[in-house]
Nucleic acid binder design. Structure first.
Lengths: 338, 338
DNA sequence: CCTGGCACTCACACGGGCCGAGTGCCAGAC
DNA sequence: GTCTGGCACTCGGCCCGTGTGAGTGCCAGG
């Protein structure tokens, strides 16, 4: 029911508002965009758009600004994803190629994404539960003290200390290590619980307790929600949204520090394809005036984790989406190589 | 040459200003503190303090606020370190005791410190170069692809991928792993270079190249400045310094994101005892209106890394110093236990 | 050396007036 | 039916003058 031109007007409003951060009026619109009609006509269109809830006036006799619903329409129907320029692509690749380990990859990705989008970047570590086991190591630190080290195909390393009730001999340890690895290496972490289920039975009575302890610690580290880690960066970019923002920035910073909240936020994003959540579409209170652009990344087709940016609803969606998508692809490549 | 009372006046000014965040005048001082003299006398004292550069007026006919030099005097001569209450101590211990691995310890410490001081917390991971080797693990991921895993006595785990020129046999690998460990386990990381120096010579011609590669990667991970990692938290607390702060907060957030800067900052702190750097004493530009309170922590007497907080020069120094010191102690304990 | 008094200085809050961008509505043109 | 130009109206932001109060410096006297 919205005519072609009215959509065009909405697009123009979004673009101008994103650029200037100021409510945009009918006259300014006709000047900056070749709409082919007069301000008066635009005014009628704007009134219609306002009736439908796509735009709003901050106060009477001011220009209009897009509402969350307006941005939603813009993202869904009016905006494409802006591909990056080839120098940008090259810069990304060069920058990511220098990473020495997974922490470094994630760290670089965060910085890159923050710089590229000039927004807050959030990168989740590859989830354990979506990875496969590369190796399980067991070390004796003391007679009754072990360290368990898990290594995934994505290069993630997790370690845990284990206190055993009874001393555990070196041969038993080597035995357990070997059997554990022969069962789980190359398998998905989600399958590990049933793969090791009957392992204690094959050990001598004396060692069963310790073996069970080791396995329970192993399983604990795989609990979803607990095992997910992430890194954020670019928070200084929050200060770019001038004026009023002491009130705006506080809850956002608070939300960003709550990794649980962020993980939930990313978790809500689709596994494949890009997800854009605008303003009040975000469940969390502190983030109702921000948008989240998230996408899964992985070494193969499947996503092993997600990354994205958090910014004001008033953001450059096409550009941001382009950057997020491109970075996710390159990170996937890097991960596949390691 | 500053009389006892003038010092008392300075202390009162600092305390009031820290509490109210507003310039403090002579009358308010006499009302809130039992100085036993009249406002007029205080005015004279304040004029003297101003001449000496300990306090300043933001504008004529306003109260005085402490200068960096004033805070310095306050910290050095007027303020003690305020010990935490015992419920606080208990809370710290409980909170830190739940940590499952080093990342968790560091993460919890950051959150704890941020909450306790209501400021930005910075915690450095135990430095490799100040730790001793607990274990070195070498895994074959592919015939010509190895993973090196370093584990320190403080629970830190670092991994690196190694691409070898030639395939490296399973027996050679086991051999190298064993010899490496027998030489370095229990030794300080700084000694590792010379301990492994002659290792390639004892291998067959074919394997020497790979062994050298492994060793060079090992040595690379020990390079200072590169190996240092840290975690920050509590940035939302920056928003508590009202009014003017868009201009204030931006450079601080930027500085905090530059881990290199922070590491240098912490590096400048004394190894033992607490270091307080006030305002312009900080070399970095973005931090000239903040103070840094830092202290080393470690499992024994020796510091393996540092932690601290970054806040406005207008901070509660005694309380902050107390919290920082207490947290450092408990973290040291936790580390010693693992 | 301390004190009370006094004149002075400013930042800040308040209120009025002006300006301009922007709007809604309407009558007329295409 | 749709677009257009015109017109009256609204209201936030800016400028400015005024008043107020906190705070100061100085000085003469105890």
């Amino acid at each position: 029911m919205l005519s072609e031109r009215r959509l065009e007007v909405l697009r123009a409003i979004v673009q101008d508002y994103v650029g200037t951060e100021e409510p945009v009026g009918s006259k300014a619109l006709t000047e900056r965009h070749k709409l082919g009609v007069s301000p008066a006509t635009i005014r009628n269109d704007m009134a219609a758009l306002e009736d439908e809830g796509f735009i709003a006036q901050p106060h009477t006799s001011a220009g209009r600004i897009p509402t969350d619903k307006g941005y939603r329409l813009f993202v869904d129907r009016l905006a494409g994803v802006k591909p990056l320029s080839s120098p940008e692509r090259r810069a990304i690749q060069n920058f990511l190629d220098g990473a020495v380990d997974l922490d470094d990859v994630v760290g670089r990705t965060v910085r890159l994404l923050a710089q590229l989008t000039r927004q807050v970047a959030v990168v989740q570590y590859p989830s354990l539960t979506r990875s496969t086991v590369r190796h399980v190591e067991l070390l004796a630190l003391a007679p009754a003290r072990l360290m368990l080290v898990l290594i995934t195909d994505t290069g993630r390393v997790e370690q845990r200390l284990i206190d055993c009730q009874a001393p555990f001999g070196e041969t038993s340890l080597a035995d357990l290590r070997a059997r554990l690895n022969s069962r789980v290496v190359g398998r998905r972490f989600t399958d590990v619980p049933q793969l090791v289920q009957d392992l204690p039975e094959s050990f001598e009575q004396d060692d069963r307790g310790t073996v069970s302890t080791v396995l329970s610690v192993l399983l604990e580290t795989l609990v979803e929600e607990t095992e997910e880690r992430l890194m954020i960066g670019g928070t200084a970019n929050l200060t770019r949204f001038g004026h009023d923002f002491p009130l705006t920035i506080r809850p956002v910073l608070e939300a960003l520090e709550e990794h649980v909240v962020l993980l939930k936020l990313l978790g809500e994003a689709k596994d494949s394809g890009m997800t854009v959540r605008i303003g009040h579409e975000n469940a969390h209170e502190g983030l109702t005036s921000t948008s989240v652009v998230a996408v899964g990344y992985g070494s193969g087709d499947e996503a092993v984790a997600k990354l994205g940016v958090v910014g004001p609803t008033r953001m450059d969606y096409p550009g941001t989406m382009g950057a997020v998508r491109a970075v996710a692809r390159y990170v996937g490549q890097i991960l596949a190589e390691s």
